[in-house]
Design a protein around this nucleic acid. Structure first.
Length: 366
DNA sequence: AACACCGGGGTCTGCCATTCTC
DNA sequence: GAGAATGGCAGACCCCGGTGTT
């Protein structure tokens, strides 16, 4: 008991609480010899929780050598929040360092996240999905500052929730990293003549929830590339970046270059020029998101069905649907003798429900 | 009623390399 | 020097329906 009180004292004076409270002190060897050796008691304890030791060892071998850990406390904590035994085992197996967090630390971090979520269950779901996002950093002050910072940008509670749900890693980034990203976005805004930098950044974040888990280098490279390749005017650039263009920034720089190169090549081979390329991208930026192979196979589906490339350039949104969906629809329309030259391709740009209704109407007309 | 325009919603981790800290 | 903390990367859409117009 005295030992435990001593531990309590030690933890309370540390800035980043990492040590366990109600943990096992089981070390059968002297300190020095212990260094390179796994803690047998810990291994047994983890096994009893159903942890996949080989997975844990492969990911973070150092954790298995620690004398002090809090796996039991962690398990109790997570179970009290609604996680089942299998979920706890899976979390530890995938991010073993989580067992080095004290119960107080866990409670505090949980509370900080919980302010943004609706329920514990929702959080358990995210933690099970991505244990690393929650546990990788032990800095609760940084987490708090992050939330304050993100709120200060004017991000709505709804978007904050979406951000934490979709890209939970954002909240484990250092505030500096996140701030750098916002500053980059604001400088981009200024460089394209925008006057409301805050609004600009907020819009891009809301459109692209993954932005904070990308590097500023990537975003900068992609923005520079897109603006110079597409020769956009300031106002075009502002609109583009604040709509679907925001999503394109996610791509690895190499993929973006590759995809644009392919699209340019494909259009040229069909007799189109730079203006057609620009038109297509501005109308439906996500055309750049598609891999060369996927894009080409979709375009070929349409062309093979007798649709003109100019029709696709004017209505590129039809490329948004999956190849299977496109094939199915084209087949249904072919069976009905649908004439795209006469009726256009708008029929292909509908939700499935609406499309099937349209097919029924066409059948009745026959 | 049928169509066109438009924007929204879901989705993303697990690993490696480097830097920091003790 | 070991382990912890942090930054960065690969991978590469699809679908729905509200609403205004004709």
């Amino acid at each position: 008991m005295a030992q435990r009180q001593m531990l309590y004292f030690l933890f309370s004076v540390r800035r980043c609480v990492q040590l366990p409270v109600a943990s096992r002190l089981c070390s059968s060897r002297p300190q020095n010899a212990d260094k390179a050796v796994e803690n047998v008691c810990l291994l047994e304890s983890l096994s009893s929780l159903g942890v996949d030791l080989s997975s844990a060892r492969r990911r973070q071998p150092g954790v298995l050598k620690r004398a002090l850990t809090n796996e039991k406390g962690l398990a109790r904590f997570l179970q009290s929040k609604g996680a089942d035994v299998a979920a706890v085992a899976s979390i530890i197996s995938r991010f073993p360092r989580c067992i080095t967090r004290s119960s107080e630390h866990l409670q505090e971090r949980w509370n900080l996240w919980r302010n943004i979520f609706q329920s514990d269950g929702e959080m358990v779901e995210i933690l099970s999905r991505s244990p690393e996002s929650f546990f990788r950093s032990s800095d609760n002050r940084n987490l708090e500052e992050n939330i304050t910072f993100l709120k200060s940008l004017g991000i709505t509670p709804k978007d904050l929730h979406r951000l934490l749900t979709t890209a939970p890693r954002t909240f484990s980034n250092s505030v500096e990293l996140n701030r750098n990203m916002v500053e980059l976005l604001q400088s981009v805004c200024a460089s394209v003549g925008g006057d409301n930098q805050k609004e600009f950044a907020r819009t891009i974040i809301s459109k692209n929830l993954y932005i904070f888990i990308r590097s500023t280098n990537r975003i900068r490279a992609n923005v520079d590339f897109l603006l110079s390749e597409m020769k956009l005017s300031d106002s075009e650039a502002q609109v583009f970046l604040q709509s679907h263009g925001a999503l394109i920034l996610d791509l690895s720089h190499e993929s973006l270059k590759k995809n644009l190169k392919n699209l340019r090549w494909k259009l040229r081979s069909l007799g189109c020029g730079e203006e057609d390329l620009r038109k297509m991208i501005l109308k439906f930026s996500l055309v750049l998101f598609m891999s060369a192979q996927l894009l080409n196979s979709k375009l070929d589906c349409f062309l093979d069905a007798g649709i003109q490339i100019q029709q696709l350039i004017l209505k590129p949104k039809v490329l948004d649907f999956s190849v299977e969906n496109i094939r199915r629809r084209l087949e249904q329309l072919r069976a009905l003798g649908y004439d795209f030259r006469k009726h256009g391709i708008g029929v292909l740009d509908m939700s499935n429900k609406r499309f099937q209704e349209k097919i029924r109407r066409l059948e009745n007309e026959l």
